[in-house]
């Protein structure tokens, strides 16, 4: 029983990271319909700029702020320069996708060239182990869970309570109509990229504190950003959030019986199971299929 509780706590903390990855990518995809593979690059940029700012002598908090800023700027640059150009040229989905892959590996390797391939860690987080009975966890787990929860809550608040947030939902809901009532969709695409990048930065920051940053985290991040969105159902941000937690729990509780190296496999099984049993995703409210 204690073990199960322990695994649940571990699962929720990792699930919080997946939650952030899922909603950040899911928001961008819902608004812009761009398969933003370079989201992994944003993740790496955020992680390494946090490290960079700390090396410059900033405190952990300031490094976090710096990493968020860097991620937002990067995300907006990719949209504003690359995707916008391709969309103007009527590029197909494949073209956009390949350009995004190109961006991911270019950025990753530029960073690797500048920083080297060793694991970069962030110092200064006062890790404290909290023990309740036999269950032990640390305050970083709490911070992860709280960050994800608060950010998700704020995002929902933003989307439902503010003017620009509602405009974003309008673009998601009916892009043609948004144009008709005079919403400049290009601006909102940029906004979606800014927000999505803003949300992914804390995930990168926390992962860097917990296990350190390496270059190939970008691929890992992009996989765990897609999976919650597909499992939760394309178009549903709460779905993506919940799916993120579910993946985290499944992986963690799976360790009970399976060696921890096979975690990716557990997520994959969940993914395939959902694809077979409910192709629209757990909470997908629309089937996007080729229109006849």
């Amino acid at each position: 029983m204690d073990l199960l509780l322990q695994l649940t706590i571990n699962g929720l903390s990792m699930g919080s990271i997946y939650l952030l990855l899922g909603i950040s990518w899911g928001l961008i995809f819902a608004v812009t319909r761009t398969f933003h593979f370079a989201h992994g690059a944003t993740f790496v940029v955020a992680a390494y700029s946090a490290y960079f700012f700390q090396q410059l002598g900033f405190s952990l908090i300031l490094a976090a702020v710096g990493s968020v800023l860097a991620a937002v700027l990067f995300g907006m640059a990719v949209e504003g320069i690359l995707y916008r150009y391709l969309r103007k040229a009527f590029a197909s989905h494949l073209v956009v996708f390949v350009a995004a892959i190109g961006t991911l590996i270019t950025v990753e390797n530029l960073i690797a060239m500048g920083f080297g391939t060793d694991v970069k860690t962030l110092e200064g987080f006062p890790i404290k182990v909290i023990k309740i009975g036999k269950v032990g966890f640390n305050n970083l787990h709490v911070v992860m869970f709280a960050t994800a929860g608060i950010l998700f809550f704020l995002l929902m608040l933003y989307l439902h309570r503010t003017k620009t947030g509602k405009a974003l939902r309008a673009v998601i809901s009916n892009p043609e109509m948004a144009e008709v009532i005079g919403i400049d969709t290009r601006k909102y695409f940029l906004l979606a990229f800014a927000l999505g990048s803003l949300l992914v930065a804390p995930a990168a920051f926390l992962v860097t504190i917990e296990r350190g940053a390496t270059i190939d985290l970008g691929h890992w991040a992009i996989l765990y950003a897609f999976m919650p969105v597909i499992i939760g159902g394309i178009g549903s941000l709460p779905g993506a959030a919940l799916a993120g937690l579910i993946i985290g729990l499944a992986e963690s509780i799976g360790i009970w019986k399976i060696s921890s190296q096979w975690q990716v496999g557990i997520a994959f099984v969940v993914l395939v199971a959902v694809m077979i049993l409910k192709p629209t995703g757990l909470f997908g409210f629309r089937v996007y299929r080729g229109k006849i």
Partner: peptide, 25 residues
Amino acid sequence: AYMPQGQGLFPDLTVMENLEISCFG
């Protein structure tokens, strides 16, 4: 102003939000 054929509104937004969005700015 233009009202398109078919669903000329935002189905996932509330009625009030639809109105709000439409006089954006």
